[in-house]
Write a protein that binds this DNA or RNA. Structure first.
Lengths: 252, 252
DNA sequence: ATCTAACGTATCATTATATGATATGTGCGA
DNA sequence: TCGCACATATCATATAATGATACGTTAGAT
């Protein structure tokens, strides 16, 4: 079928099973065999067997009446295992909790994952859209403060490549799609170590981020804070949020 | 090998791949091929191929120097997909946020998963042990308030069976292992709709839970709050926390 | 510095195992 | 009532997973 990427030490059936898992996302929350086949591009029979296997193994719940498959609690258990494996989360968590209590606003631990930022930990303090209140969401790194502040730590060449090549997606009508503008913002972030972006993922949302550097000095994550533009103006953000954010990022 | 559970619509390779994934937990955060083979009981070569496949597919990160495998960010993405598929989480989240802000203490959304309670959403407000601050952790339902309050909604027979048969594990030296005592607590919870437990998972931790009923009247989840016994006595818990908890649970 | 053991990596023939076409069963809307 | 779309079950065939084996590499001990 799909040209085996590598032979003999690549188990195609397993890879196909993973495609079933990945078919589920924020739009596809429960799927029938038929639509599962459409999404994955796999054969009808294959999907039947794969999905059944995943069901028997407890990875997929199956509604006995609608016959629709859904992610099971096992998916959360995997996340739990992930959390223990990521040393950054363990180190950051207590400090993020303190931070969120101090400033009373939503704070996140944002990690770089390829060209995306993925929110590893989220401590929501204010009601917001669902997507912004659960961990695991990923968005193009260039678009948001957390990503910019990380890219800003890259060596010159790599930084330019990232700005030029990395994925960009208009999430709101005001998402910045102009790479030159993004380059400026990243340049500024390189100087200051922080970044502030507006209306990138949600309208009237302000994102503030400070970088966390790995042992090699390269940014690998960021402490991120998301507030409403209605309640916070630039000046207050800089005096009442930024300092604490920086402290937290440095402490991690 | 392991007698095929069902034939012809069960893909053994996929099942084995899942065993690799599940080998990772809070104790095994990064694993070599050899230990992976030991844990899963799979053949050396099988593990090699399976792990490589998972790596190529982006489900496992591989440290290029130590050759150790670790869960990848994909595990968080799966969790994200799970969150969208669980209607309870979406409905509960904004209310949980309000609740956590109001009482200033850690609140959780606890769901029943087999004989366990799994924390689907956690909003930590105070520093605590790592296990209590990330979602996905699961603990025996009978041991904790959230589980008791759910079991309490079961019909007589089922309730007794659960109390008699369900898993129990001594997590702290003071975890209640006496099923008769648990039966009493569940009986009380059946009357009041809430439960309070002490020292079950962490010492000096008090757990307070109110049940959330499904459309059939059967409890399927609970709003749970965890506070320190040092800071809260029974009276204050009942007057300053319980009412809000109940409101929140009812509203969901 | 040398040896050895443990582990990761690579190769290969063999057949068990996954495959996908087909057939049967079931529920829903016209 | 009919017919369609989907889930479920069966089966012969050859593909694709298997596990034994052999090679490389690293690290610890002597």
């Amino acid at each position: 079928m799909t040209k085996p990427k590598q032979n003999t030490l690549f188990v195609a059936s397993l890879a196909k099973g993973l495609r079933i898992l990945r078919a589920f996302d924020h739009t596809n929350t429960e799927l029938s065999l038929a639509t599962l086949a459409k999404i994955t591009g796999l054969d009808k029979s294959a999907v039947q067997r794969l999905a059944n296997t995943l069901h028997v193994e407890g990875m997929l719940d199956k509604d006995p009446v609608t016959r629709l498959y859904r992610p099971s609690h096992a998916w959360l258990r995997l996340a739990y295992a992930y959390y223990w494996s990521d040393p950054l989360v363990a180190r950051a968590m207590p400090k993020l909790i303190d931070l969120s209590q101090r400033i009373g606003e939503t704070v996140n631990l944002a990690e770089l994952s390829g060209q995306d930022i993925i929110y590893a930990a989220r401590l929501p303090c204010k009601r917001t859209i669902f997507a912004a209140s659960v961990p695991g969401r990923s968005v193009p790194a260039l678009s948001i403060s957390a990503g910019q502040v990380i890219v800003a730590t890259f060596p010159q060449q790599e930084r330019e490549d990232a700005i030029h090549d990395w994925r960009l997606r208009a999430q709101t009508p005001r998402t910045t799609m102009d790479r030159a503008k993004i380059a400026d913002q990243i340049e500024a972030a390189a100087q200051t170590g922080y970044a502030i972006t507006y209306d990138q993922m949600i309208l009237d949302e302000v994102g503030i981020a400070c970088v966390i550097r790995g042992p090699d000095g390269r940014g690998c994550a960021a402490v991120h804070c998301s507030v409403s533009a209605h309640h916070w103006d630039d000046a207050r953000i800089r005096t009442e949020i930024l300092p604490w954010l920086q402290d937290t990022a440095n402490a991690i």
